[in-house]
Design a protein around this nucleic acid. Sequence first.
RNA 1: GAUCGCGUAGCUCAGCUGGUAGAGCAAGCGGCUUUUAACCGCUAGGUCCUGGGUUCGAGCCCCAGCGCGAUCACCA
Length: 576
Amino acid sequence: MVCGRASLVRASRRSYPSFSRTIRCAPMASLLAMALQDHTAVSEHAANQPSTPDDTQAPTAESLRELEVARRAKLDRLRELGVEPFGQRIDGLATLADARAAFSEPVHLAHEEAAKAAKEGGAPAPADSRPRATVAGRVVQHRDLGKLVFVWLRDSTGDLQVSISKAGVDATTFEIAKALDYGDVVAASGHVGRTNRGEVCVWADGLTMQSKSLEPPPSKWHGLTDPEIRYRRRYVDMFATPQTIKTFQARSRIVSAIRRFMESRGFLEVETPMMHPIAGGAAARPFLTHHNTLDMQLFMRVAPELYLKRLLVGGMPKVFEINRNFRNEGVDRSHNPEFTSMEVYEAFGDYGTMMELTESLLHELAVQAGAEQWGGGATAGGPTLAFGDLSINWGKPFVRVRFEDLFLRALGFPMRDEARVRASAKAAHIDGADKKDHWLLVEALFEEKAEPLIDPARPTFVMDYPSAVSPLTRPSRAQPEIAERWDLFVAGMEIGPAYTELNDPDIQLAKFTEQLSGADDEIDTFRSLDEDFLTALRVGMPPAGGLGLGIDRIVMLLTNSSTIRDVILFPLLRRQ
RNA sequence: GAUCGCGUAGCUCAGCUGGUAGAGCAAGCGGCUUUUAACCGCUAGGUCCUGGGUUCGAGCCCCAGCGCGAUCACCA
């Protein structure tokens, strides 16, 4: 079933849930790009030279310059004050969440009362008993009330207000505070208290510029809504859209939890080549690259399968690999040209052991998502998680349905009824309905009529595909026309397949050869027989179960992300 | 690759039947010691994605291109 992984990136087109958060288009990417390209020119002009009628620039660049000039003027002013606007190491920083957690209402009240009593009694102000914190973050709000300035900082743990009063800091520090811009990175120290309105804040007695931001920021309230800028300039998206960092924190924790789960089951994580002399393991179109010194054409891997199976031959009984695959194919909400998958092989297992493993793993992940351990968009409440307008119930056991049974339910006649299959295919206007092989029509009808019956809100294993459409999978011993293969569907997406692996080298060779002869011209140009893999099989591979899971799609499901681009830090975009 | 939609100020968005380009926030100046999308006054900011065309006149209509999005195709 060497080629089975190809289907890993296939999504059913029917039951994809809709998401309420629609993102509208707005432009400005080009202006932002100009801002970047114009950077040097701007700094030279802005710093010293009055603009002359001669320095004609596109009006957009002029207007952009205004915003940047204002920021550079502040930069210069900081240096005049003897302040270095690009800071240095700070020890003992608290996260904004930790600083917020340090707040204590009783301590704060006691301090206020003591201060008030001292003032009324004419005594000197008592020592401030509230906890101290030093924090740092990016400025996301700035309110200047004259002799009092409120600033909201943001870091990866959240937002926190810093309050600076003219009476509480020296003159230079207060000038810095008044001149802060949205986007600046600052550090502040002080006692953690709250304002009259109940907002927890650091009452700063120190405030330093750590990085003066020179770029015009996105809207402080609306943030970035243009998906193009969100993906192209992810570093802006990450502070403008707090959910972005939460989603990627969740992704990291999910992948980490998958590793822990696999290790707890005794699997060994391995790393196999991502540059392959022979494109194998899936039938997808590969990317080509080249090694100069060896003058060798290489393929970016489309699947690690053939290497992982060599490890079974070599004597590693339980292995997994979490890493990238590269497929030179279309791009949509559930496909990115490079994507992360986990492949698993277990000697002396089969597709049944892979089913139990997958079900336990995903259930465990969903339970933890329900407990909000991912910190992402997941909803509380256990193994039922929101995904768009769906509530996906991850409770065990997942639905299991045999291909043959679902076919019968959907079409009303058995898949072996050749006459009715052909008639039905013609009625459904399936391509080549009068010429194609019976089993190809069965497969087409299944996709057309049966897959839509799968409940998108319940993870569903479709198992026991016809051998004729699973040429590289091991047939069932009891029923050779049935292949020991399943595909897991959730929310209309295919999450991954599993197989009872073929380990008879002669059958494997025959199937490879058959498949190569059937390949079309385009595919044929990158395909060749992996002789060494066949040699490995002749050395002897134990019977095994094999599994592939699309990690990006699992993260989408667990973080309620409508597109794969929201769970990939830097998704591929067309060159501007 | 195909079809449809979108592209207007730094950001978020209005813009009538084709008739001189608008708001909020951001920015600059001034005011304000407890703000919560702070508020008040003033100022500045535009190649309406690009290139053609129609028209007396185009942000708006037509054609082509670019980018993004959606749907489809590809993904044995």
